[in-house]
Amino acid sequence: MILPQNRVAWASVSPALGWTLAFFVLPFAAMAAISFYPQDGSGPSLLSYAQFFNSPSYYYALFNSLEVTGLVTVISILLAYPFALILADVVPERWQRLALTLAVLPFWTSYVVRSYSWLLVLSENGLVNATMVKFGILSAPIQLANTRGATIIGFVHFFVMLLTLTIYANLKQLSPNYRKAAADLGAGPIRSFIHVVLPLTLPGIMVGAFLTFVLAIGDYITPQILGGNNELLMPQLIMMQIGRRGDFSSASALSIILMLVVTVAYLFCARWLKIERT
């Protein structure tokens, strides 16, 4: 039963609407506006955007971000899918909840702490190097931390957990009848997987992939702690604008460019992201 609008209705929704308008829409408008007023005080122009498109060190940050995020998304899916499949199919039903809860436990470590933990593992005298040298696999420690590889490992660690969740949820929703039908029609387990299970779990994969893309491309901490100084990613470039240079206009322009990239990714994934009411 839905009541007609009245004062109570508006009173109940206005705090949330007001908050969103005041502290989300307005700041965004301020950011958009300031991006057209370059730091040097000259009048409205596209200078802050031109700076991005004209300097390789700027647009390479976006390329790097896209490359890293793309790699992270693909690697995470490849690692998480079999794992989710094992959790859903091989692990006995009554242990699944526990197995899944355990698998996403480190998900709750904060970003800063999680990246720092990987630094412990990957640093020059860290666990991996120390173990490898001790067992004679390496003669001397190799550089693992402060590389793009370290950034990717840090990201993949987080997103394997996230994707395991979305893909597992999708697998559990699948009626076993689909696979029974495929088997009745003579498909072996491999064919049934490729032609039946995989296409039906595409929504779970795409939801996870989209979340991975959005969260990874906007993350400042992981590349800043694990990536070293060899290359910049987009969030680092944005932070540099305000940190070192106090250039709000450029930081705003870069933020908006980053947001547009995410919007394009959203439009690309939109057909899989429709949340259907069941």
Binding site: T20, F23, F24, P27, M31, I34, S252, L258, M259
Partner: peptide, 22 residues
């Protein structure tokens, strides 16, 4: 509108607030 902030990264929300509060 109310759920829109969920799709924007914290970095950009923070930047917007920084610029706005400033």
């Amino acid at each position: 509108l109310i759920t829109a902030p969920l799709t924007i990264s914290y970095l950009i929300i923070g930047m917007g607030l920084l610029v706005f509060f400033n």
